[in-house]
């Protein structure tokens, strides 16, 4: 009867001398491991989004949270006139990054996505581009 109790307390006491796992968030910030899938970012090259609006990310997206509309620029090239991700639907699976043939989208370590209004969860092209 007493032995199991002592064994339990032994585990408890041994943890008192180990390094803590919990973080005093938000005062302490976590170390985000590589490969973490946070908020998306649209990569930029030559001051332009690399995205060519090939529609592979909305096609592969299992949550159907990406909306792309293609446009034709002055050089007759294809670009994303509209690129929106609905973060309330996103399941952060990263398939969009895998599907992208031109390395135009990546996932950042931003995980703090809480917001006050539903509309604010729809990230537009401009907001996705800002984080370089």
């Amino acid at each position: 009867m007493i032995m199991p109790l002592l064994q339990g307390l032994k585990i408890t006491f041994s943890h008192m001398f180990k390094k803590t796992i919990t973080l005093q968030y938000p005062h302490e910030r976590p170390n985000i491991p590589p490969g973490f899938r946070g908020l998306h970012a649209l990569n930029v090259s030559h001051d332009k989004a690399k995205c060519v609006a090939c529609y592979l990310c909305p096609t592969v997206c299992p949550a159907k949270c990406i909306t792309v509309e293609a446009g034709e620029d002055a050089n007759h090239d294809k670009y994303a006139a509209k690129y929106e991700i609905d973060m309330l639907r996103c399941i952060f699976c990263g398939y969009c990054v895998e599907a992208c043939p031109v390395d135009a989208i990546r996932m950042t370590d931003t995980f703090e996505l809480a917001n006050m209004k539903r509309a604010d969860f729809v990230f537009t092209k401009e907001t996705l581009l800002e984080k370089k």
């Binding site: 060519v52 090939c54 090239d77 294809k78």
Partner: peptide, 8 residues
């Protein structure tokens, strides 16, 4: 250029 070609 399949990503930008409409025939894809």
């Amino acid at each position: 250029d399949c990503p930008v070609c409409d025939a894809a």
